[in-house]
Simulated scan of single mutants.
Amino acid sequence: MRLIVTDMDGSLLNSKKELPQDIFQVIEEIHAKGLEFAVASGRSYGCLAQMFEPVKDKISFICDNGAYVISKGKVLYSSNINPDKYKFFVQEGRKYPGIYMTVCAPTRAFVENVNEIPEKAMEEINHYYSYFEEVSDLCAVNEDVLKICYLDLSGAENNIYPALQPFSDNPRVVLSADVWVDVVNKEVNKGHGLITIQNALDIARDETVIFGDYLNDLELFEHADHSYAPSNAHDDIKKIAKEVIGHHDEWSIINKIKEIIQKV
């Protein structure tokens, strides 16, 4: 085993969005044994870099569901949405009441008209994009856009996700969590991001272990021979995982990682 890759929400993090207390010690142990560690998340680099500040230049990140990939401080891949298409998707999102959008650039995120967003929705946005900048019009953002996020507290799978499906060609629409839908370029997914890191580090799929819980992790499982899903994972993920382990609130992922590195 040479590469350990984990999803964040629903996997490495508990339901309070907390990292394991000993995560940085474990990452140092991983490196001491000559192994690599990577995070694969729908979260953007700005958020992940804050969370992993002590080790951010020692590990790899598959950010924005694969739209932005960094390894040891070096950008390996970035996939920007065509400006006309991203503006189209912003305008589509505005048609649906109760939908709150975030536009993600490589190192920043943008939210419009924050004073019009309910407190509960702002709490959810702040979990993932606490570093966001407020703008009056998302269509006026003059930066490379990697991802458009739609927050649907009524349940994304049955509401905004099917509403956007007729336009899901390129870019494509991804169900990334119970209340989140992402729009990214067609070729973008976590599996593509994993391949990018494997190629950069010269690591094979049979040397890779992955952890994931939700549908935006599906492609990760296609490019690693060793895979685990927590018991709280989506049923489709549990079906393809090599092993289903404990609930993420029981710290099952970090405990399995410790078990793996002890055998190296």
Rank of each mutant, 00 (worst) to 15 (best):
V184N: 08
K147W: 00
V181D: 04
I197T: 07
H192C: 13
V174F: 04
P171H: 05
I197H: 04
G212E: 03
E219A: 13
I203P: 02
F221D: 08
H192F: 13
L201M: 05
D152L: 02
L201N: 06
I197Q: 03
H248R: 04
D182V: 03
R205V: 13
D249Y: 09
N170T: 15
L194F: 01
A156I: 09
D217M: 07
G155P: 09
D217R: 07
A224W: 10
A156R: 05
T208M: 02
F221V: 02
T196Q: 15
K238M: 06
D235R: 12
K242S: 12
L218E: 13
D217A: 05
L194E: 10
A177K: 05
C149Q: 10
G212A: 05
E187H: 13
D206S: 14
R205D: 13
N199T: 14
Y150I: 01
D206K: 12
E219L: 12
S231T: 03
W180T: 01
L201D: 04
W180L: 01
A233R: 04
L215I: 11
D152Q: 04
N216T: 03
I203H: 04
D225F: 12
H223F: 14
I237K: 11
A156S: 05
N159E: 09
N185H: 01
E219C: 02
W251H: 11
V244P: 03
F221T: 06
G193S: 05
W251C: 02
W180S: 04
K186D: 14
E243C: 05
D206Q: 15
N159T: 14
Q165A: 11
N158A: 11
G212V: 00
I245K: 08
K186C: 10
C149T: 13
D213F: 04
V173M: 07
E157R: 12
G155D: 01
S227D: 08
D213G: 10
I245H: 06
Y150V: 05
A233K: 10
V179T: 11
I210P: 06
N216M: 07
H226E: 12
A229P: 03
D169I: 15
I195R: 14
E222S: 15
V145S: 05
D235E: 13
F167V: 00
V179P: 06
E250D: 15
Y214T: 05
S252E: 04
Y214G: 08
F221M: 05
L194S: 07
D202S: 15
D169W: 13
E222I: 11
V188A: 01
V188S: 09
I148L: 09
P166N: 14
S231R: 00
I240D: 03
D235H: 10
D144I: 07
D236L: 12
I237Y: 00
D225Q: 14
V244H: 01
V184L: 04
Y161M: 01
G212I: 11
V184K: 00
P171A: 03
L175P: 03
K239G: 09
L220K: 13
G155E: 00
I203N: 10
D213C: 09
E243D: 10
L153Y: 12
